[in-house]
Design a protein around this nucleic acid. Sequence first.
DNA 1: GGGTATTTGTCCGTATGTATT
DNA 2: AAATACATACGGACAAATACC
Lengths: 271, 271
Amino acid sequence: MAEPRWRQIADDLRQKIEDGALGADGKPLPTELELQDEYEASRNTVRDAVKWLVGRGLVYTRSGQGTFVSQKIDPFVTVLQPNEPEGESTAFAFAVKNRSRTPDLSVPRVEIQVAYGVVAAELGLAAGASVVSRHQRRLIDGVPYSLQTTFYPMALVEQGATRLIQATDIAEGAVHYLEDLFKFKEAGRRDRFAVRAADANESAFFVLPDDGRVGVFELIRTGFDEAGQPFRVTVTTLPTDRNQFVLENGKVPALADGDDAPKSSSAEHKP
Amino acid sequence: MAEPRWRQIADDLRQKIEDGALGADGKPLPTELELQDEYEASRNTVRDAVKWLVGRGLVYTRSGQGTFVSQKIDPFVTVLQPNEPEGESTAFAFAVKNRSRTPDLSVPRVEIQVAYGVVAAELGLAAGASVVSRHQRRLIDGVPYSLQTTFYPMALVEQGATRLIQATDIAEGAVHYLEDLFKFKEAGRRDRFAVRAADANESAFFVLPDDGRVGVFELIRTGFDEAGQPFRVTVTTLPTDRNQFVLENGKVPALADGDDAPKSSSAEHKP
DNA sequence: GGGTATTTGTCCGTATGTATT
DNA sequence: AAATACATACGGACAAATACC
């Protein structure tokens, strides 16, 4: 069996979808019963084919309704400035370009936790040391955008940064607050980018499909003082299906507001 | 049916795997037949459960052998310097830290293409203009690392940059070659980061699972001259399952060589 | 709101193919 | 060659979700 039957069917459907012969203008694909007749295969076999398309994100199914081709979504574009000018927003510097989108920020949930794993490693703390965590959810135009938690060594609070443990937004940004309070500068930052599977919390908040197809960006930003000592770690997660990042270096023309985010270039660099 | 049977089984298996009760030390999970007995479900149902785990990347199956829990892989860490000092490697500045890894670079495949889509948009060319594309594959320690294509307007070749259309490596870097030849500087760069599904070529080169679970980073780097005119676009794709990026800004302590890349922080910032 | 038809989701049993040991 | 284990494929029954009258 060179190519399994379900795979042949899947490839055929994909071709027809890309040609626009199927599912155009939001119409559903043929029902499983119809496909069963068309391909002379059992319903379970055509279902396997459709499942493969679902796994590729090409189509989605709705119980009781049918199978539809997925629409590309207009991504959030987050610009990471290399040299932040000033007044960055809370904890994670970001700017979302595009047509008058309205951000929405939850009240921070503040907790005292024990540092472990990544947080302890990044802050250079012994596993078991206390940290303050400030957690926030972001929405843009009502769409879940990011989950963010910033961790500070408990020592900062003991030295007077009491606003860190209040569950209210720090308007000027927590980092700025610390800079003002302690008369120092965040001299450097290191960002780590990775992609991993979404956990249950993220799947629920971002409303991701259950099959684990859509991962999340995990951004770990560590802030250092002049002495090279880390004093905060911010962990931000964002779903990969609706987010892009832009990094600018040196002299770069402004990104036009209506500038379309690239869809895909896969056809353009093939081996 | 609050929770489907297959999902209950999947959750139970996941729990046991995470507890180390199953699949530890490389031993296979119980066979489908054994699971069928254990859970008193049909073989198809336990297969559905296992499929879900496979989709999550928690286990993999090998025909004729069994089902095994996936091992975490030691990721490549690519450092993106904000202000490249000098002598960046060909076309895409990168540095892979870690234990004496040996990079491997294919001979470039050079083509003359018609610009369209992303490339035309980024280079500010009319769709239909000619571009030179230089495509390379990278391996690290024999493991496929990236696919990369850089596009230059054909006009550069007509103005004398003839080495661009030769299928030989440009040791000092193509950008450096252009800078020397035309006495100008790459004054700025814009990087776009996105994640998308791998296409067939990428799946084959990177040896990705067929189910589309693993996406690829797509990095689009556009280089601008002093006048703000784009003169090259580099498209790089790397699988998300084995790559991380690090971005440093300002004064940051050196990244230790053996510094472990973070596994996951999902447990540490939950709503 | 209720009922019904449509469509996908779950679950079962069975048979046979293919890869690996 | 034989045994084992996963992969493919079929057919059937019922459940759950949705739309529509």
